[in-house]
Computed example of a mutant assay.
Amino acid sequence: MNSGTQKKIVVGVDGSESSKCALRWALKQAALTGAVVQAVTSWEFPAFYSWEGGPMPPDDFEQAAQKSLDDTVDEIELEPGPAVPIQRELTHAHAAQALLDAAADADLLVVGSRGHGSFYGALLGSVSQRCAQHANCPVVIVRH
């Protein structure tokens, strides 16, 4: 739990509709509890990428993730709703580990039920499932 006086809600953002719903939910909860929201996006090199070269230069992966984070937060901030501070964090890591690390001192972790993963029939994605099993704080999984 957050040992400071400011409450913190960490929310996973990957540009998917599910993560946008999670961010909206986190903002409403933050308005009720006086918390700050930390929107976290992570990026990794895809499995098919090699150091000899791939479809995109290495910096492009990070830039694409930053754009996704910024576009998503900017979109949600324009919607009517509570004015809550949103901190943005971009991390080079697996999504679940990035969220677990960011939420190590958080009061709450909020994730969408399923993001941009490939197994669309699942009720829970692998990231949300791992967060629910391993987070040090309560986890809310928001369904789209």
Score class of each variant (00 low, 15 high):
residue 79 E to A: 13
residue 77 E to G: 00
residue 72 T to K: 02
residue 67 K to V: 00
residue 97 Q to F: 02
residue 71 D to R: 01
residue 105 D to T: 15
residue 45 F to G: 05
residue 109 L to M: 08
residue 91 T to Y: 00
residue 82 P to R: 11
residue 94 H to C: 03
residue 96 A to T: 06
residue 127 V to T: 10
residue 113 S to W: 02
residue 61 F to M: 03
residue 121 G to N: 11
residue 48 F to E: 11
residue 103 A to Y: 10
residue 67 K to M: 06
residue 50 S to W: 06
residue 50 S to K: 11
residue 106 A to M: 09
residue 71 D to C: 03
residue 76 I to L: 09
residue 99 L to I: 00
residue 46 P to D: 02
residue 99 L to S: 00
residue 76 I to E: 07
residue 57 P to V: 14
residue 69 L to I: 06
residue 74 D to W: 01
residue 87 Q to P: 00
residue 51 W to Q: 14
residue 126 S to M: 04
residue 101 D to I: 04
residue 85 P to F: 12
residue 104 A to Y: 07
residue 108 L to W: 08
residue 125 G to C: 03
residue 114 R to D: 07
residue 112 G to T: 12
residue 110 V to G: 11
residue 54 G to Q: 08
residue 65 A to H: 01
residue 127 V to H: 02
residue 116 H to G: 04
residue 46 P to R: 02
residue 98 A to W: 01
residue 114 R to G: 01
residue 77 E to D: 14
residue 124 L to K: 01
residue 113 S to D: 03
residue 58 P to A: 14
residue 72 T to I: 10
residue 89 E to F: 01
residue 100 L to S: 05
residue 120 Y to S: 15
residue 55 P to Y: 15
residue 67 K to L: 09
residue 79 E to Q: 14
residue 82 P to Q: 12
residue 62 E to S: 15
residue 93 A to N: 09
residue 121 G to S: 12
residue 69 L to N: 09
residue 62 E to W: 00
residue 54 G to N: 10
residue 112 G to V: 09
residue 86 I to A: 05
residue 96 A to H: 11
residue 108 L to E: 07
residue 119 F to Y: 07
residue 114 R to A: 01
residue 46 P to K: 01
residue 125 G to S: 02
residue 55 P to E: 15
residue 79 E to P: 08
residue 74 D to K: 12
residue 88 R to T: 05
residue 123 L to C: 04
residue 106 A to Q: 04
residue 94 H to D: 10
residue 80 P to R: 12
residue 54 G to E: 05
residue 90 L to F: 05
residue 81 G to E: 13
residue 120 Y to P: 05
residue 102 A to P: 12
residue 108 L to N: 07
residue 122 A to Y: 03
residue 87 Q to S: 07
residue 82 P to D: 10
residue 108 L to D: 09
residue 110 V to M: 09
residue 81 G to R: 11
residue 75 E to P: 03
residue 77 E to I: 12
residue 75 E to Y: 11
residue 68 S to P: 02
residue 101 D to C: 02
residue 72 T to P: 13
residue 81 G to M: 09
residue 61 F to R: 08
residue 71 D to Y: 05
residue 57 P to A: 15
residue 73 V to N: 09
residue 45 F to Y: 14
residue 79 E to Y: 04
residue 107 D to Q: 12
residue 93 A to I: 01
residue 63 Q to W: 03
residue 92 H to Q: 09
residue 70 D to T: 13
residue 116 H to T: 13
residue 88 R to H: 00
